[in-house]
Amino acid sequence: MIGLQVIQDTAMTLMDKAAIEIPEDYLSGLKHAAQVEDGDLSSFVLQAMLENYEAAKEDRRAMCGDTGCPRWYVKMANEARIEGGPVALETELRRATANATRSIPLRPNRVHPLWRTDHDNNVGINAPEIEFAFEPEGDWIDLTTVHKGGLFGTDYRMLFPSDGIEGIKRFYLDSLVAFGKRGLSCQPAIIGIGLGGSKDTCMVLGKRAACLRTVGDRNPDPRMAELELEFIELGNSIGMGAMGFVGKSMVIDCHIEAGYCHTGGMQMSVHAFCLSSRRACARIHADGSVEYRTDPHWFTPYQRRETVEWPAILPSKKSA
């Protein structure tokens, strides 16, 4: 049984880590971009960003004044049991979000869309988002918080099979060019692309591809992996760098995730995880021990499964 106190303490630490410490994978990606960037202004911006991460860590202050929208991803192993059940867990995550907003401090961003009312704590109707997933083995839970910034840099479009890869490329470029101007998407970013699913799944997949996979990670489907690499190059060949200044640092990495879709369609979403690619993760074991990390390991073979049964039983074996 996992106790509520350890969940509360871990969630507070995660809020703090996410807001202040840039994940190592993104940082090394950005350092590489800074090395190859030859646009003057764009280089200056990248240098300032690198100094900013240092300043944030040294002073223990948020790296960006804009909190973005803090959200939670919870993964429960099949045998995990939580004191008070999932409702108590959700309450702890909402509490940690509110308390950390005050203690770090974070900017309270969340307001009612119409009445603009505000609890000054990043908590409200449907906020923070808490998403759940499961894994077949174990008795642990993984908590991941992502502070996703960016009012800009995201788009959705219903494409069709006849649009093909060339249509996908065009929409990808359109999103980067449109939101990259003046640096509205706070590039260089980790770009996540959702393909297929239904409209909502497509958005969810693209966002998770951007926020829950680390720089350097490749899709296990070799052809999709190839496409990811091609898209990194394509994005960096636009001629645009940080803040939309002339340069070539637009994309730190590109992750693509797919979901089975309606036979007539090919949904596509594009998401940009900005210069403040804030994510922090921890595994809480049943004995109360906690391990912190920055890689959520979200997209496991189980999450990407295609079969009815798990462990996967291939159709030919099933009939045997």
């Binding site: 200056f44 911006v45 300032a48 960003m49 100094e51 900013n52 991460y53 300043a55 944030a56 002073d59 202050r61 948020a62 790296m63 960006c64 004044g65 804009d66 910034g149 640096g183 706070c186 940080a242 803040m243 900005c274 210069l275 403040s276």
Partner: peptide, 14 residues
């Protein structure tokens, strides 16, 4: 005058 980055909140905070 534009801020730089734009995520340089910690530097500006200083």
């Amino acid at each position: 005058l534009t801020t730089v980055g734009y995520g340089t909140g910690a530097l500006l905070g200083r």
